[in-house]
């Protein structure tokens, strides 16, 4: 196996390594990360419905019906925050700094309000994580959603500081776009949590 002397005349190094079409790399990374998160929550929801399917009574007899008013308000808050997040992306994409920063700020505030409300509402429930399978999955679903919202709020707050410092523009907003995908994802998870825990019960 003699290697012949290579004729390297037509060899060249491309100007850019990155395939420019489609999603940018950070956004693709975020989307894949969200895909793994989808599997994570799918497991928790699968657990919920598996436990529910085998229970003779669900929720158990000693669990009072959960008041639905606060969760509905929370849902409205989170949906609004998704709209404002979308506004933030629109703002940065069109180099509209006022819309961008204010929408982002609104999103962070709404996220914080939602967090406080979610934690407050969960503490009001008349049962605990250790009071049987229902309590376990109820609080597990809620806590992991709270954790994800917290992560989202921290990320958005970090972006807000960057935005205030003028770090983003229509040519550099991949982080904002990634954050918006993540925020919409957390929002969709909440719709499932809300439907499962409060509506279907």
């Amino acid at each position: 196996m003699t290697a012949t002397a290579l004729d390297r005349e037509d060899w060249e190094l491309p100007d850019s390594f990155e395939d420019e079409g489609g999603m940018s790399m950070p956004v693709m990374g975020t989307v894949l990360f969200i895909a793994s998160e989808v599997m994570f929550f799918a497991t928790l929801f699968g657990t919920y419905y598996a436990l529910r399917a085998q229970a003779s009574q669900w929720p158990p007899a000693d669990v009072e019906e959960l008041p639905i008013f606060i969760p509905i308000v929370l849902t409205a808050i989170l949906l609004t925050s998704s709209v404002s997040m979308h506004g933030a992306v629109w703002g940065v994409r069109n180099n509209n700094r006022t819309v961008f920063v204010s929408s982002l700020a609104i999103t962070v505030v709404l996220g914080l309000v939602f967090l406080v409300g979610e934690v407050f509402d969960a503490l009001e429930a008349g049962f605990e994580i250790s009071s049987g399978a229902y309590g376990s999955i109820f609080f597990t679903l809620l806590s992991f959603h709270v954790l994800h919202v917290t992560g989202g709020v921290v990320f958005l707050a970090y972006l807000l500081f960057g935005a205030a410092a003028g770090r983003f523009s229509s040519r550099n907003y991949q982080q904002v776009e990634s954050a918006s995908y993540y925020w919409h994802f957390v929002d969709i998870v909440w719709i499932f949590v809300f439907t499962t825990l409060y509506i279907i019960q």
Binding site: M39, F40, F41, A42, L44, T47, I129, S130, A133, I137
Partner: peptide, 24 residues
Amino acid sequence: LFSFPVVTAGLLLLWIDRNFGGAF
């Protein structure tokens, strides 16, 4: 991507059973 998050969630459930009185 589609299997590790599942077991991570499952092990967290086991963790909750072990440490917080969960009943999964």
